[in-house]
Amino acid sequence: MADDAVVEKISISGPTLASIIHRFTSSPGDVDGLLFGHVARLPPPDLHDDDPSAATSAAASQSPLSATVTGIFCSGSPMGFYDALGRLDLPALRRAFAAADHRPPGFALLGWFSGRRRSPVHPSMREFAVSFSLSKYPTLTLDDRPGSAHPDLPPKPCIFLLLASSPSPNHAVHTHEYRAFVFRSTAAGSGALEPRSLDVINVGPAFRGQYSSFSPASAFPWMPCWPRGIEEGERERGSKKGESLREAERELRLLESSAEGFGLERLERLVGPGAAEYTSELEDLYTKMLLKLEGLARLVEKSSARVLEQENRNSLLRNKLAGME
């Protein structure tokens, strides 16, 4: 069974952990949310040359897993994707998954987190039940994009990250604690949350290997570029068109959508000996791009302000309902 795989190592990137803690400290009450990331197989522990049976059986299913948390989703209100008995609210869960905008291959729902102030750093009754339910639904861990199903993709675990904070009486010192758990089903049927240490991945010499293995993936296409002179370029372009006209056109459209009407022909003239004349054109391109970014930023800022306004109004209403003020 797929559940046999053991998650030995949980890693989280420093910014992700920081953003969870930030969400927690800035929220008026307790928070919970989902953890996204990917799972990889760790190299099998120690294989002995003289034991061939171990090498074959331990190869695929027994080698421990390593889970890396790279993203979070936090709805801002408690019990966003489960009910009082810890049962999952599947539509809400799918919505949350769809809301994660950047989904590299292998990106999956790894588990969830819960942050509560001034309570023991020990999983609660409901937290255990939610982890149990999450571990029971293997379909939710699958990426719904076509063609992204990896046959060799390891089974997804259920990770639970518990955060607690307790400020000192004068609020001068805030103590944050966190513990990571992995849900494992047991023979008795109820399963158990086993504590695991949490590796925080940061930039620095200790993480050089991780940094080097990074490969960027961008939606922006490669720009066609011919630095060897126009005639040569013309010839090459002719042959290229014959080869993959469709591909080039698709990239062109993509580029044009980013450049706001700055044609590829104009762009091509920037490269080569006459480039100096077109400096102003290039500046025009950048300005247009910046303007677009600025407009976007302003939109985000405005909508954030309105969300905050609405959030404050909601919490006032809730307080009124609860008889506080």
Partner: peptide
């Protein structure tokens, strides 16, 4: 430990056992 949520009074309590 009985954990309510003052901000969301309609949310039922949770329990943390020793």
């Amino acid at each position: 430990d009985v954990v309510f949520n003052a901000g969301y009074p309609s949310v039922p309590p949770d329990f943390v056992f020793p």
